[in-house]
Design a binder for these strands. Sequence first.
RNA 1: GACCCGUUCGUCUAGUGGUUAGGACACCGCCCUUUCACGGCGGCGACACGGGUUCGAGUCCCGUACGGGUCGCCA
Length: 468
Amino acid sequence: MLLAPSSSAIRPVRTRFAPSPTGYLHIGGARTALYNWLYARHTGGHFVLRVEDTDAARNQDTAVQAIYDGLRWLGLDWDEGPGVGGPYGPYAQSERHEIHGRYLEKLLAAGLAYDDEGAIRFRVPDRDIVVNDLVCGEQRVNLKAQGSTRWDPETKENVPANPDLVIRRVDGSYIFHFVNVVDDIEMAITHIIRGEDHLPNTPKHQALYEAFGVEPPIFCHIPLNLNADGSKMSKRDTGASVAEYMSGGFLPEAVCNYIALLGWSPKDDQEVFTMGELIDRFDLDAINHSNSRFDFEKCKWLNGEHLRRLAPEALVELAQPYLVAAGLPAEDSRLTGAMSLARERVQLLTEIPALIAPVFAPVISYDPASVAKVQKREGVPAQLEVLRRHFADAEPWSAVTVHDALNAAAEELAVKPGVLMLPCRVSVSGSGSGPDLVPLLTLIGREEVESRINAFEQILGGTEPSNP
RNA sequence: GACCCGUUCGUCUAGUGGUUAGGACACCGCCCUUUCACGGCGGCGACACGGGUUCGAGUCCCGUACGGGUCGCCA
């Protein structure tokens, strides 16, 4: 009973993400969830979250929580699932026993399943099963022929095997392949978007759909994400857990943007997308066919791009926890101005405190290398003296007057303004690099700038730095 | 081992028979009479290999190599 999936076009799209509670949300899983979510949003359909827990793994609240937290942080809200309910519940596999039992009965009654020493096996048909995958094309396999041998990794050889699928264990619990299909049928899932690692299993699922006389959903197997070195990404690898991004100063929309691009292409040169744009542009026909490697640097760059598109006020909001942790004021009239400076060079929210600290820090921590660089120069104390004099005349203290003062000092000394910038910068921030100097000085204020230049002159004069 | 998926700059990718093979990250250089950064400009850098088909192939076909995946009473 092979049925073409064409008629499903009239059904409202229903996608699902079905993670097992492993205690963390893998970035690859996050991408799978994202694609399902995007497709549902793109088509105006529904996105379902179903937790594939098992009896044995029950009561692992924290393990499930990590998945919820990750999805919520990414902004991938589910229309049906744990916490929100829905017409096709329950949404935890462990609570769907009766349903699974009912489907098992169907198979048993039709003679398509049988008891094997207490376990129950699904009788696999002896004919080609055809799967149509949106990405990988047509897959054709005879499960009976293929399953009659099994690879034994111990002896490294093929050994005879029973091709019929165990669907219920001796202990009465059900096997993944079976519950997966049953739940997808029951939840009226129309599109299965999942990792390519499931592709070889799909003919088994197809056979089950056919056994139940149900039109299978549209399969879409997406290529995998690998580590930078091409190895499989596992729990311990850098960037593998969404939790790292949550605490590492990333913006959820930047992470979504990046992982969306790993495996899907907008087919043009746009790289920075808002969530709305992703929803708009995302479609299944533009999914790539080959595996990709995770480039943490590009992910950071993209995060910087998203940060740069934010209003300073929004940045103040987002930086709150990092400011507090760094002992910086969480509320201050200069914060917005400081953010618009930090915004220009920031990639991660975690970098913000160091960037704006000079605006607020009463004590400068001098970077030895930067100080040494200044010390090597001739005539710096005299230059700072002239600079300070012009700063004293800047009235009122503003970006314009500070800028003019800097230029005037340079003119008097017959040097380019740039020559004065390094000593000035190190004086007020302790570092040779940082936000744009003039706005930084403006923000710090005349009094504080002058006293920091004073302090730095003393250091250059041979007095021991109070803060090496 | 069998079966499946794949292979364009280091990485992410555009490219659907005729292109100087385009963009982005990273890297390098220059510019922004102001350092670092941001931005702008430029540079480096790729069609895995071998056969076909074709007037013509990154694009189609076959093979090889390489990478990944799957073969559980795991999910």
